[in-house]
């Protein structure tokens, strides 16, 4: 990656700064938050932002800033593990399909179509019906949805690489498809996969928020942005700030990740160099 070029890309810089700040806030929440998130203060409930509570308090008098800080861990954990599941299973499947072709490829792609027919929310609905709600099940549901996305991206890009001279040459000197995939295909896909991972990460944050909002995500007392919005809904007339700030946290995080993804796409894509 060309550092000078990266620094000249506005999307990349803004995205990197925003996502780094959010990661720092999440890390900071392990050692410090303005108030403990379990601290109820019924007398000081539903207070608008003030010097003592920068983002105000909720219907139990809990500090909203502290809850957003601690909640960021939940969003980041669910999104990153589900990206890891999607990439960890999807990429090898896509590479395998591209390397083998024929029947195996066809079967893998049809399986992909099948998983694609279950949007993350429907998988989550089914998983919750069977195993009950929780962060782990949200991770599984979003992770399963990520598998075909990574498999498609890896397969499509690998297929076009398989017709390139350097890959054909590696085959001609007797390298096995598995070795060619490891030494020549995968390294050339890395940048594409990083961009896709960034996109899926931001979609994961949105999906987790949606699942927690309808009660299928992480359960109390662990704060989560989605559930904070659910709790804000009944208070919308009394305390609109309860709905405003967790939503802004989601928007800023997703926006930062999307900008980073766009920036990485331009910076890493060899066609733009």
């Amino acid at each position: 990656m060309n550092i000078g070029k990266a620094l000249a890309n506005r999307s990349f810089c803004v995205g990197l700064i925003v996502t780094s700040l959010i990661a720092l806030v999440a890390l900071l929440s392990f050692v410090w938050a303005p108030y403990p998130v379990g601290a109820f203060d019924i007398a000081g409930k539903l207070k608008p932002p003030s010097a003592a509570h920068w983002l105000g308090t909720d219907h139990f008098g809990r500090d909203i800033l502290s809850m957003i800080m601690v909640g960021s861990r939940n969003s980041i954990a669910v999104a990153s593990v589900s990206v890891a599941i999607g990439a960890g299973i999807g990429v090898p499947l896509g590479l395998w399909g591209a390397a083998t072709g024929g029947f195996v490829d066809e079967v893998l792609m049809r399986l992909n179509d099948l998983v694609f027919a279950f949007p993350a929310l429907l998988s989550a609905v089914m998983i919750t019906t069977v195993f009950g709600p929780g962060a782990i099940n949200a991770i599984i549901a979003i992770g399963i949805f990520n598998i075909p996305v990574f498999a498609r991206v890896a397969r499509a890009a690998a297929l076009s690489l398989w017709s390139r001279e350097f890959v054909i040459a590696a085959g001609a000197i007797g390298k096995s498809p598995a070795l060619i995939t490891r030494d020549h295909i995968l390294p050339n896909l890395a940048s594409l996969l990083i961009v896709q991972a960034t996109i899926q990460f931001s979609l994961g944050i949105l999906a987790e928020a949606g699942l927690s909002y309808v009660g299928l995500g992480s359960q109390p007392p662990m704060p989560s942005w989605g559930r904070m919005l659910f709790e804000a809904q009944t208070m919308i007339g009394l305390a609109p700030h309860m709905a405003l700030f967790p939503g802004l946290a989601i928007v800023i995080t997703v926006l930062g990740l999307n900008l980073l993804g766009d920036g990485l796409h331009d910076v890493l894509d060899p066609r733009f160099q």
Binding site: A209, Y213, A232, G247, V254
Partner: peptide
Amino acid sequence: GVAIPNFWFALL
């Protein structure tokens, strides 16, 4: 717009 969750937008 892409970054806005629809249910939050709904609340607003």
